[in-house]
């Protein structure tokens, strides 16, 4: 009896590992084969049966993608845009969130509801007039076009307000009596107490900006301002005889976020689930 039970348990455990491994192979396969193909020659990629393991990896495709296919420039452009948007969203959301939580001003509630309402307007619904605005500002093909429309965030404002409301009111009173105005209270007390929120929203904002596709597509059309996501579309149009470069470029484009994923796993999870948990 006992032996049978142990065998049964072992078999169940084995089955679980088998299931997990199968699922992992399916999920990871597209990325795995992208890595493999980036290390093969175009001829090897096209050959059948396919090569599933690169015995003689070739690394030239990466420098080709980086240089000839302009991935280097596109990555730089994406980095500039993303860092600027993230920093700006953090700044404006913290400022507005603080005002809604701690500063008394007339129509505060109405203004706050106005900020909340922006969450209900998808960016996709305003691209037509927004592009006209950008063109009329003379911003077509500039970083301003990529960055300025996104320097504020409704959800960021909301999340920071909620987080700041968790700071005890008496801390504000104590700081006021200690001689600290709003700015110093914000910098010395409120922000240090809300570091997890800063990290979570920072990553949320970073991911959103980095992954943008539609907007950069319609406000830029030159190499000097094109972001890496749009660059990938250009890349995919390359000829079959450069397919290894396509795969290498795709990896290069995904690399920054992979690094982020491994470095800030906990904050990333919090950032991604922030919307779900806000209720």
């Amino acid at each position: 009896m006992r032996a049978a039970g142990t065998t049964g348990r072992l078999a169940r455990k084995g089955a679980r590992y088998l299931l997990l491994t199968g699922a992992a192979i399916i999920v990871a396969f597209p990325i795995y084969i992208t890595i493999v193909n980036a290390l093969l020659t175009p001829q090897q990629i096209a050959a059948r049966p396919p090569t599933l393991f690169p015995l003689h990896p070739l690394w030239g495709s990466f420098s080709q993608a980086f240089g000839q296919a302009h991935l280097g420039i596109y990555l730089r452009n994406s980095a500039i845009m993303t860092v600027a948007i993230t920093a700006a969203q953090l700044l404006t959301s913290v400022m507005a969130g603080y005002a809604f939580a701690f500063v008394r001003f007339p129509f505060r509630r109405a203004v706050f509801i106005l900020c909340l309402a922006t969450m209900m307007v998808p960016a996709e619904a305003t691209i037509v007039p927004n592009r006209q605005t950008i063109v009329s500002f003379g911003w077509f093909n500039t970083f301003a076009a990529l960055i300025v429309p996104f320097v504020a965030s409704g959800i960021g404002t909301f999340l920071f307000r909620q987080a700041f409301l968790g700071v005890p009111r008496e801390l504000r009173d104590a700081a006021t009596l200690d001689g600290y105005g709003h700015l110093r209270f914000l910098v010395r007390i409120v922000l240090p107490l809300n570091r997890p929120m800063l990290a979570a929203f920072g990553i949320y904002s970073f991911l959103g900006a980095w992954n943008q596709y539609l907007w950069p597509l319609i406000v830029t059309d030159t190499t000097s301002t094109r972001t890496v996501q749009i660059g990938l579309k250009q890349l995919s149009a390359l000829n079959v005889d450069q397919s290894n470069v396509i795969f290498a470029g795709t990896l290069l484009a995904a690399l920054p976020i992979f690094v982020l994923l491994f470095a800030f796993q906990k904050q990333l999870v919090r950032g991604l689930t922030a919307g779900a948990l806000k209720g």
């Binding site: 999920v27 990325i31 890496v228 976020i257």
Partner: peptide, 10 residues
């Protein structure tokens, strides 16, 4: 969770 690192374009 790895596919969160891939953008739509990737």
């Amino acid at each position: 969770s790895s596919t969160v690192a891939t953008s739509t374009a990737v």
